[in-house]
Design a protein around this nucleic acid. Structure first.
Lengths: 240, 240
DNA sequence: ACGCTTTCGCTACGACCCGTAGCGTAATGG
DNA sequence: CCATTACGCTACGGGTCGTAGCGAAAGCGT
């Protein structure tokens, strides 16, 4: 909590307004031009900032777009609709709504593609977007347990695996539906998807294990360090 | 079947060997350089072809990479392991193995990202890759019905929706697991995923409908025109 | 064998974007 | 008031793009 005020460095401080303007300009450029035709010079012009200023804060296109897109997903909220199924449907619909926006569509997939050859970029995506949104799974599990819809989960490791599986299935299906199949993830689709997911989960997975003794679980584990690593976001520090 | 021999045009025919060399060179360049650093000039050099020859056949980087990656997925085969669950696990493992190759990782996601702003490119991806591989779902359904594991499906529209849902869930989850979570889709993971998917499907979706009267279904419908549209692949025709 | 047609390899070109260096100026903190 | 850092601006070499233009090569029909 102290690292948010870096030791009061001397000299002119960086303009926080410039950061916001640059990220907003990046999203605007993504909407109009898409990933491939987006140029940093153009973004700088849109933001009313010199190109050199942009390069002082971000290493390149990839890192800039990751941060610009990450802000979109912070809008996600877990609604309280009364039941686990309804809650999941609600958050999935929100996720689909974000993916329907052009700045998210082209930006997100592009950086994911780049991250396959850039470990640092992949880590940035994980801490800025993926792990950051696992809070929704945590909240959903806790709320469902409070309702008595889900049992407490003893095995932490098994539970962590299940949480990862849920995340991959939810995010993966919505992304594929929206971007590859290019069809809307509307209420009907989300209802059907949630039904399949929830039935498959509550009826357990591995044969030989009693149905209700697992399913959703701890979900915590490595997600804890994600919250700690969230500070790793934002523009790059001084390194020149 | 006649369109494969275009009306015996006059003049020097295009070198089929050049096509193969270019696509192979594209995959090699994807492995070494990734999407963003891949240049068409470099690909032409690798293939032993002039840059102009490359531009005569493909409109740009996007179309070229789509065709280069599409060939990878044609390797997919539906194994006969005795049960529907085992068959699914087998084909998902193959899919994961392809996504583990770097030329598929970086190439596929990049063109999907570009397709969000290019309808023609999205259509090319659909006919060359997505719809093309739905044959696996068709084969799997037919085989499972022959075994008596799945009932015949009367409602074509409902069945088609279910087939799309399955495809989005399978492909989406594997892609997300492999590229975003950056963890291997190994046998353990595939087993757990298949269990959840299959349980959710066989126990039906909508309440009020008897469990075994739906689940997997016709799966056909629009997939038929995919097979017909498969000829749309390959280099572009003469247009300049 | 002879044209006609189309493709191929090669070179060259203007246009654009990249990422950085250099400079003078503005804004803080000690 | 001075050291320090950020900012805007200009300019630059290097690389890629996509196309034009040329002569040569390779088929097809007669």
């Amino acid at each position: 909590m102290q690292s948010r005020t870096p030791p009061a460095r001397a000299g002119r401080p960086r303009s926080a307004a410039a950061d916001a303007a640059i990220l907003a300009a990046t999203r605007a450029a993504l909407v109009e031009l898409g990933w491939s035709k987006l140029t940093l010079g153009d973004v700088a012009t849109r933001a009313g900032v010199a190109k050199t200023t942009l390069y002082r804060r971000w290493a390149g296109k990839n890192e800039l777009v990751v941060d610009a897109v990450a802000e979109l997903f912070d809008e996600l909220r877990l609604p309280d609709r009364g039941s686990l199924a309804a809650d999941i449907e609600g958050v999935v619909l929100q996720f689909a709504a974000i993916l329907a926006r052009p700045e998210a569509r082209s930006g997100l997939m592009a950086v994911v593609a780049e991250s396959t050859r850039d470990d640092a970029l992949r880590a940035r995506i994980r801490t800025s977007i993926v792990e950051r949104q696992k809070r929704l799974v945590l909240e959903g599990r806790a709320r469902a347990q409070a309702r008595g819809e889900l049992p407490l989960e003893p095995d932490r490791e098994e539970a962590s695996r299940t949480a990862d599986l849920i995340f991959d299935m939810v995010a993966g299906a919505v992304v594929h539906r929206t971007l590859v199949s290019a069809q809307p993830a509307d209420e009907d689709w989300v209802r059907g998807f949630t039904a399949v997911l929830l039935l498959g989960l509550t009826d357990s997975a591995r044969p030989g294990v009693p149905p209700s003794s697992r399913s959703l679980g701890k979900l915590g584990g490595e997600a804890v360090q994600a919250e700690a690593g969230a500070l790793g976001r934002g523009p790059r520090g001084r390194e020149g």
